[in-house]
Write a protein that binds this DNA or RNA. Sequence first.
DNA 1: CTGTGATATGGGATCGTTCCCATAGGTGAC
DNA 2: GTCACCTATGGGAACGATCCCATATCACAG
Lengths: 333, 333
Amino acid sequence: MSHNIKEIALLAGVSKSTASRVISGKGYASAEVRERVLSVVERLQYKPNAVARAMVAKRTHDIGVIVFRDRQPIVSHPLYGKLIDAILMAAEARGYSVFLKTDQEMSLRSTDYMLERRVDGLILISRLRKNVIDYVKKFNLPYLMVNGSTDDPDVIHLVSNDEEGGERAAAYLHGRGHRKFFVIAGPQEHRSHNLRLTGFRRGLDRFGQIEAAEVVYSSESDFEYGSRLMSAHWEAFARGGYTALFTTNDMLALGAMKVLQARAVAVPGQVAVMGFDNVAYAGMHTPSLTTVRVDTDSMGRDAVDMLDRLIRQEEDLPKLIEYASELIVREST
Amino acid sequence: MSHNIKEIALLAGVSKSTASRVISGKGYASAEVRERVLSVVERLQYKPNAVARAMVAKRTHDIGVIVFRDRQPIVSHPLYGKLIDAILMAAEARGYSVFLKTDQEMSLRSTDYMLERRVDGLILISRLRKNVIDYVKKFNLPYLMVNGSTDDPDVIHLVSNDEEGGERAAAYLHGRGHRKFFVIAGPQEHRSHNLRLTGFRRGLDRFGQIEAAEVVYSSESDFEYGSRLMSAHWEAFARGGYTALFTTNDMLALGAMKVLQARAVAVPGQVAVMGFDNVAYAGMHTPSLTTVRVDTDSMGRDAVDMLDRLIRQEEDLPKLIEYASELIVREST
DNA sequence: CTGTGATATGGGATCGTTCCCATAGGTGAC
DNA sequence: GTCACCTATGGGAACGATCCCATATCACAG
């Protein structure tokens, strides 16, 4: 079926040591021998077996990416999809391949899987309980967290500055003259949603407007629930004289807007709407959505970069990288 | 660092053959020995080395997925992202892991990569030239194509019935009373875009309306180009009295709609808009987009299923699987 | 003419598994 | 009592590479 280095060596009339030296490009080999070996390689279309290489090198050049949420389509997730893309491209650039798994935070199945595959390192994405980290720590495996929450000071983690972003959103809307805010907040056990709300409130507080926000909570943070919550609280919303709607992510905003448009509420005419994340679709919607950008490109790139340095045993890596939030003003406000 | 089976065997007081038999679960082992081995496994948190296993089994349980387009974010692609998700979930269910690469159709880099990794099989997605297939054929590696085009009868391929879908779109719009159609068509070297347009025309022809469609062509098929083409042909569009816009995919439709809405053209009031693919955003847009569904879930599932059967050397597999198109009527028409 | 160091090559151990084969005890049939 | 067969275990080759070490030739210095 597939050739091996012994065959190549035989046909080139050299030992497999010599063939190996030519093919891997390290060690001595005379020009004549080199040429002979390479011509056999070319003729037989020999592809060195990466599995065997990984075996002896004790290095797979693979990294594992685990996204902790219920096992679901993950690539299509509007935010994590962007992040995964960034990780994929950065990994490719550094010579790593990626194993992608989704897992529930209580399960350690995918972690075990990554350990068996002997990945060189692990990127853990999204909320996860302490049990996962404790588990990973037991194995001598480089890892870091992206967009998760932990109070463990040992853990390297990369996060967006959600609190600052929430505050910035409040300041912006207040600056546009809004004084009554309706807020749809995603699950509060989720670090991002929690901090965005906290930040938003703190922003209002700064203007003495802490009373001005009415908050409703959603157990999920997708389009569907955005619509559902807006519908459920429609009466209160319509009576309350709110001029601005803030949600803790874009998909909630988009879902809520769908309801507003169905009820003929003009956006931004009657109500300004603002989300968070800057998912791709936010800019395509009509009206396009004002939001706070999460820099998934940098997060993905840096995650791979940091992990690579961790794998190469570099010292003195920062424990925490935080990404500044950036306001993206569009048509919806 | 990480334990191996020899250590386990030593601590359990058995040979590594016996340890192997217990751990892999095949072959004889007395209850007493089994328990002793497993308790050591548990205590040391031993994880069998999948690399070594793959080495001896000559089976990696990996499949390679190559998407042929310019190296770009691929996961975020509205259609391919869905397809990849489906593949990922089906692969997981069948015990395969996935290596994901994007590549240009002329390059064979990622194919070589997959060969070196000794993947068990290959899924090739999107348009690709004959050189890729000829290359893959040379190696004794199971493979199939999804959503690509080929006249090679040997190649197993899974495609959506784009021509039928285009025809169905025409019939539907004609049935709604439309008689003047503006069409934005994506790149015609792309099988899907080409067949959708062909089908649409044939549909109109069936009603003697072949003259009723004005077609403009786009070199790209994303939101950006949808907007760009609509703007560029605005004069012609506004003067032409078109009552329906058909595009060969959803993103083009969404982009074009953005321009229509900016110019205060009521959708569907003045102009009905129809796309193709049924991407996630299509249902979220206001107005939500009427479209033709491409069943990426089934395609992804079947692709992995077929590849698995190919890998297991099953005989008499169908060479072609075609997915019926389904009209999804929403607000935009 | 001996010593040193660079160039060039091959032999064989090694990585961590699986699996074939040898061995051996126990049991039941004839 | 011998044969067959099942259960149970261990020894060692094999998978396909890398790499350490030994060996050999050659050039050049002293």
